[in-house]
Simulated assay, not measured.
Amino acid sequence: MTTAADPRDRPLCVSALTSGGRRAVLLTSDGIPIEAEHRPAAGGAKDLAVVVAHGFTGALERPAVRRAAGVLGAEGGVVTFSFRGHGGSGGRSTVGDREVLDLDAAVGWARRLGYARVATVGFSMGGSVVLRQAGAGADAGLRPVDAVVSVSSPARWYYRGTAPMRRVHWVITRPAGRLVSRVGLGTRIHTRDWDPVPRSPVESVPYIAPVPLLIVHGDRDGYFPLDHPLSLAAAAGGDGAELWIERGFGHAENAADARLLGRVGAWITASGAGR
């Protein structure tokens, strides 16, 4: 699946990295500068790029994101980025709403770099974003992708059924929580409520097919219990998604070890996205 070059895919600036990759600042369709990094595949192959979408309070510089990028790099080029309000990106986090535009800018950059196929891999908040971006697709003016992996994603919004999620909601909704987030976690959160409320992950999943979809969740996830991945898989219907419930796995990129990440990468290639 390929698309024509789009002027929005041109980064505002690009600089060399000593590692051989490239750092860029991308501009989203709503004007937010997003920091991004491209690490090319071995030998410079342009068959597949994997775009990695981190969880809430993450960033491309975080060790867990770098670990994921390093393992997934065995399958092709890798693009990492920081969502708005995170790391060196501009704007403020909308916790999964406008972040689809950040992911879309990263997908667009991968296309601009010449990759024939692009897969997205998202964790937690990023997991919800990859589902929403793929489910919205061309009807919303977003770029197509060739495979989607959603790890530790919520199925629905406003979930407060676990103590960790009640703490997350305190951080998001209370002035004191947003101060803690900004100062302690380096994440700037928008103060306005969603208006309108965006389509939820479980509402987005039915629109992803025929793009291959993998849903990964841990049986020790302290944030979202197993009804979330089961709901997502059910919404995909029939053969619309492959579901992995991982024994002993906790939550998102911080808990994902090299073995699990390697299996995810192999799945992307086996799905056809890497061919």
Rank of each mutant, 00 (worst) to 15 (best):
K46T: 15
P154V: 08
D30S: 10
V180W: 10
V216Y: 09
F83V: 02
G274D: 12
G77N: 10
V145D: 10
V151Q: 05
D47H: 15
V151G: 07
T57I: 10
A68T: 15
R112E: 11
L113H: 05
I208M: 13
P164H: 06
E246K: 07
V51N: 11
T187Y: 07
I34T: 06
R166F: 03
S82F: 04
L72R: 07
D227T: 05
G85H: 11
T3Q: 14
G186H: 11
V65I: 15
A74I: 00
S204N: 06
G31R: 04
Y223F: 14
V95Y: 12
V100F: 05
V51Y: 09
S93M: 04
R132M: 14
R259G: 13
G90I: 08
A69C: 12
G108V: 01
G70E: 13
E61A: 15
L17T: 11
G90V: 04
A266E: 14
R199N: 00
G85Q: 10
P210C: 14
R178M: 09
T28C: 10
G21W: 12
R66S: 04
G122C: 08
A176G: 13
V197L: 06
G96T: 08
V148W: 08
C13S: 09
W267R: 03
G73H: 14
L101P: 00
Y159N: 02
G85D: 13
R117P: 01
C13Q: 04
R167A: 14
V50W: 06
A116S: 14
G88Q: 11
L213G: 13
T3P: 00
H217L: 11
E99G: 10
P210M: 11
L113T: 03
A147R: 11
Y207R: 15
M165F: 01
W157F: 13
A110N: 05
V151C: 14
R178G: 07
G43K: 12
T269S: 13
P198I: 08
